[in-house]
Design a protein around this nucleic acid. Structure first.
Length: 287
DNA sequence: TATTCGTGGTG
DNA sequence: TCACCAAGAAT
């Protein structure tokens, strides 16, 4: 991994949540925002978020609807709600401090295996395998000659494989994990990887076997245009811009198909992103 | 295990 | 125009 670390020293992006000393809350917020949202869009949102809510308690003391508004257009607004719920639990159960053990982190809303591991590694500098889509792809290619990892779920084998590669030192393990992720994000990309600039190319099983397309990309998404997700997005855009609440008639203007609108609206209510008031208006959630 | 869940940039 | 994708989680 000497080649990888040398590459990382030179090519490491200066991202604010990597600045030392790393605040676990700031890292947690960054990791949740980065779930399926690109770095370039997360960075300004992360800055604004932490300027307003510098710790979990300050977020917990504010309204969940305010979190949804601040979330703005990062996408998947349920993440904003879950982040607020996690902040409430951190305030109420952990004295406002982000937990530092895997099982407790995993029990928080919106935090799964990747995010729990990332917080432990990047904030607390603990030696733990961090397997995101980038790391999985880099390992699949360099070590197994596969264009993409098999399946969408992290396997025990992958975890063990990475654990054996990682340095013992928590500090060095965290750096190595960041380097793997950075390589996957900048060089060993899903499409059009830049293998000629890859520090692992010499020993890459996939590159040395001619980059065979032997696997399907694991994450094919349903088309967005015309989907319920698009309708939900329309509704959320309206409600974010009108936090005082909207009427059903105003909601009806967001989408031409009444049945689909009704379905999307009901799903938002079920998610807690949309609240029906006593006078039949719709607002963002309050605690 | 396969789906669902936003948004915007890119080729 | 459109498929593909971007530090996943929950069900």
């Amino acid at each position: 991994m000497k080649e990888l670390n040398r590459w990382f020293v030179t090519n490491r992006r200066d991202l604010p949540w990597r600045h030392s000393p790393r605040d676990p809350w700031a890292v947690l917020v960054s990791e949740v925002m980065l779930q399926q949202t690109p770095v370039v869009r997360v960075q300004p949102a992360w800055e604004a978020w932490l300027a307003r809510w510098p710790d979990a308690t300050s977020l917990a003391n504010d309204q969940p609807g305010e979190a949804v508004i601040m979330w703005d257009r990062l996408g998947y607004p349920r993440r904003a709600l879950r982040l607020h719920s996690a902040a409430v639990r951190i305030r109420d159960e952990f004295g406002g401090r982000v937990p530092d053990d895997y099982d407790t982190l995993l029990s928080l809303p919106g935090i799964g295996d990747y995010t729990a591991s990332a917080i432990l590694a990047f904030a607390y500098r603990r030696t733990i395998p961090v397997l995101d889509t980038n790391v999985r792809r880099v390992l699949a290619r360099s070590r197994h000659g596969l264009a993409y990892p098999r399946g969408s779920a992290v396997t025990r084998t992958e975890r063990q494989e990475l654990a054996e590669i990682l340095p013992t030192s928590g500090e060095q393990a965290a750096t190595t994990s960041e380097a793997f992720m950075e390589l996957g994000a900048l060089i060993c990309t899903s499409q059009n990887p830049v293998c000629t600039q890859c520090p692992l190319a010499t020993n890459c099983h996939w590159y040395n076997s001619g980059q065979p397309a032997n696997q399907q990309p694991p994450n094919r998404q349903a088309r967005f245009a015309g989907s319920d997700r698009e309708v939900r997005g329309r509704i959320m855009q309206l409600i974010r811009s009108t936090p005082a609440g909207v009427t059903q008639a105003e909601l009806d203007l967001t989408w031409p198909d009444p049945a689909q609108l009704s379905r999307a609206q009901a799903s938002l209510v079920a998610d807690g992103l949309l609240v029906e008031t006593a006078d039949k208006r719709y607002t963002l959630p309050t605690s």
